[in-house]
Design a protein around this nucleic acid. Structure first.
Lengths: 203, 203
DNA sequence: ATTTATTTTAACACACTGTATTATTATAAA
DNA sequence: TTTATAATAATACAGTGTGTTAAAATAAAT
């Protein structure tokens, strides 16, 4: 047996994914066709297909490479010692408050839509939505540990509600950035968290 | 001057839109191509193009014909005299609780995504999101008139928050119907409304 | 009844898309 | 040097939306 040309593979996949991401950032995801990505990455379409045999595979890799990394980052950097502030920071990390996260939110969105009809994307979709749910629960736990939440609260229901809140804000911030501006989104989250803590009013 | 073949036009547009809707319902919106819709409506692709010169136009008509009608229906049928119940019913009318509304929600979703890059869809997108916002405010007004809301409430912020809640529930109910089942969605909405009314806990 | 203007319809061509197949090149071990 | 296999390229295919161009149908005017 012989072992031919051992070429990185994983590194090349990353290179291709990064080229794709650049196109998505500048021209939008609808222009990230196989041929365009191949040209941007400096390989032929056939070569790209050798690394990603289908477009869903490429999309899957991009989502994993960028979105999952973003979610992990959100879970990692709860710097604030003040629980309320930490909770806010974690949630804001998920929302499209800057250009980068806006791109990520757009990718997540078209990925989610495609997942409705492509069975190849189902698992990752479940993983990502579960991740959102887990993160919501983490935020609630954080507040509960600080004894900020009423004991009678239904944690399961509230984490589903917070997850929906985050998802909805993401969508609307993309669709109507002039209405759901970063400051407004932040105020809404603050309001939601304070209400969870039993403060019917805040000021 | 002469006046040639006066053919319905508006009626034919409706016929085409209904054929398109049927395809969307059964095969999903990604199969509602111009050629497929034309075949289902019994006209040639060229003929369809005569009634809808672009696919965005067709999508626009479908959204107007089905979604706007649905929104108006929601605004019309606040039957319940009990304000809390009426509010719940109005909100539930927007959410994908049955097959029909699931289809509508899916259409709204891909429409929204396309609106991000198609300038032809911008106005309708704004109209629909404004409609959601207005409806949220209507619900809040309804509760306020019944003196169920604390006077200190920020109506503007709360209607933005409720709108995000509805949007998020719509998305997640489509993505994870097994988690966001109709009963769960209803419980979440009830919880949200009760919390707005100052009930930190409900049972 | 014939002409005429205009709508309606059809039939293409074009540039894309994702996918599949096939053959060629390059490489590393035997 | 031979050889097996990875990497790449080239091409074909069916599908998409869109645009153009020409034909058919129809209702009024002559």
């Amino acid at each position: 047996m012989t072992v031919p040309k051992i070429v990185d593979h994983d590194q090349k996949r990353k290179l291709i994914a990064e080229s794709a991401w650049k196109i998505i950032e500048t021209k939008g995801i609808e222009h990230a066709s196989i041929r365009a990505v191949a040209a941007a990455a400096g390989v032929s379409p056939g070569a790209l297909r050798h690394y990603f045999s289908t477009q869903d595979e490429l999309l899957l890799f991009i989502v994993d490479y960028y979105l999952t990394r973003g979610a992990d980052r959100a879970k990692g950097i709860e710097i604030s010692r003040i629980p309320m502030k930490a909770a806010l920071e974690v949630v804001l990390e998920l929302l499209p408050m800057d250009s980068d996260k806006r791109t990520a939110a757009g990718v997540w969105w078209v990925f989610a839509i495609r997942s409705l009809t492509s069975s190849a994307l189902q698992d990752k979709k479940d993983e990502l939505t579960d991740g959102l749910h887990d993160l919501s629960r983490t935020v609630l736990d954080l507040l509960a540990k600080a004894e900020l939440l009423p004991s009678s609260i239904d944690m399961e229901l509230e984490s589903l509600r917070l997850a929906a809140m985050i998802e909805g804000l993401t969508v609307l911030a993309l669709l109507r950035p002039e209405i759901y501006a970063p400051e407004t989104v932040e105020r809404i989250i603050v309001r939601h968290l304070q209400e969870l803590c039993g403060h019917a009013v805040n000021e």
